[in-house]
């Protein structure tokens, strides 16, 4: 079966008269129907940009400069802007990080739902109302009729994120890109939102890309994960395999950085150094300067190499292999 979404060799660049910066390079991944892909990485690794590259909402001067974005096997990059608009929200929906910022502060919840509905369907006022109430009800918002008349600031952060999710799922999209939607929320609310999104996507067979820097969240949610570093995918595979036995030293560093309960007092593991700026990437593996296993061979960029049929890693000296002296 064709995956819902495939990215093939995607390259997103910021082109200015002075310089061209490639923020995403050679990015390939796929999500199947009903599958949850966790896209993990530090800030600046390009994970959010990947989301915006898919629905082509990158702020200028950024744009996709190479590769393909295939939705149900069809490349959507050649589509015109009006054709693209008709996909957004209907086929590809997005949930953002900060629910305080996602909803327009000066428009009523009802108006914002109405606009999202009318973007793709012709409906009467009564139908809009019914649909809006049903959508809010579905994401567990109490007294949905009354909520239609409220403004975002009258709702709590968790409620706002529920409204945003309701809006994103109005047209039963095939793919939802969730860009750290629980990061700004309390831990207890995080759990509720996670369960909500997971449940809704599973029921409808929606493919979900969950962008996060939080491995703990992804570990409990995703089927597969892809780890990004400096605009490239460095490791990809089933979530349990990767968490149990990471092959890329960066992935291993990320996993080790997660505080473990019951190990209080000890120093937290860190990855030394920081991610290089996109304007100043080393010639080969971008992680090499921070990597304990780096050798001279890391001066050339390794390809994303399959480890087994489900996993791939972009490393010359993956963990579990001897580093030649």
């Amino acid at each position: 079966m064709t995956p819902v979404l495939e990215l093939c060799g995607l390259q997103t660049s910021f082109v200015t008269p002075g310089a061209t910066i490639h923020a995403l390079r050679d990015l390939s991944l796929s999500v199947a129907r009903g599958e949850i892909l966790g896209l993990v990485g530090e800030s600046g690794s390009g994970k959010s940009l990947t989301g915006f590259s898919i629905n082509r909402l990158i702020s200028p001067p950024g744009r996709v400069t190479a590769g393909e974005v295939r939705l149900h096997g069809q490349d959507i990059l050649p589509l015109s802007e009006p054709e693209m608009r008709r996909l957004r929200g209907r086929k590809i929906a997005m949930i953002f990080q900060d629910p305080m910022m996602t909803l327009n502060p000066v428009l009523r919840i009802g108006t914002q739902i109405r606009d999202a509905l009318l973007a793709h369907e012709r409906l009467s006022d009564a139908e809009i109302r019914t649909r809006a109430i049903a959508a809010l009800d579905e994401v567990g918002i109490p007294a949905p009729e009354a909520r239609l008349r409220t403004y975002p600031h009258q709702l709590s952060g968790g409620m706002r994120q529920r409204v945003a999710i309701a809006i994103a799922l109005l047209h039963q999209p095939d793919l939802v890109i969730a860009d750290e939607p629980t990061t700004a929320l309390d831990v207890t609310i995080q759990g509720q939102i996670l369960a909500l999104v997971q449940g809704l996507c599973r029921d409808r067979g929606t493919a979900l890309i969950w962008i996060s820097h939080d491995l703990a969240v992804v570990a409990g949610l995703a089927d597969r994960i892809a780890v990004m570093y400096a605009g490239r995918i460095v490791e990809e595979g089933p979530v349990d395999d990767i968490l149990d036995a990471p092959a890329h030293p960066y992935t291993a560093g990320l996993i080790a950085s997660v505080p473990v309960p019951g190990q209080r007092g000890g120093r937290l593991q860190q990855i030394p150094g920081r991610m290089p700026a996109l304007t100043d990437l080393p010639p080969g593996c971008a992680f090499a300067p921070r990597c304990a296993r780096a050798t001279a061979a890391c001066g050339t960029m390794p390809p994303l190499t399959p480890v087994n049929e489900a996993r791939a890693v972009r490393c010359i000296h993956p963990l579990g292999q001897e580093v030649p002296a």
């Binding site: 608009r85 929906a93 997005m94 996602t102 327009n104 428009l107």
Partner: peptide
Amino acid sequence: MFTDYIKFARANGVPERRVLGAHALKNILI
């Protein structure tokens, strides 16, 4: 134009005319 709520409106496929005429305009009028 750089706020998340404008991006969100666009990500929901709200036509550009409506994004500018309602979602953005009401915010800049204050």
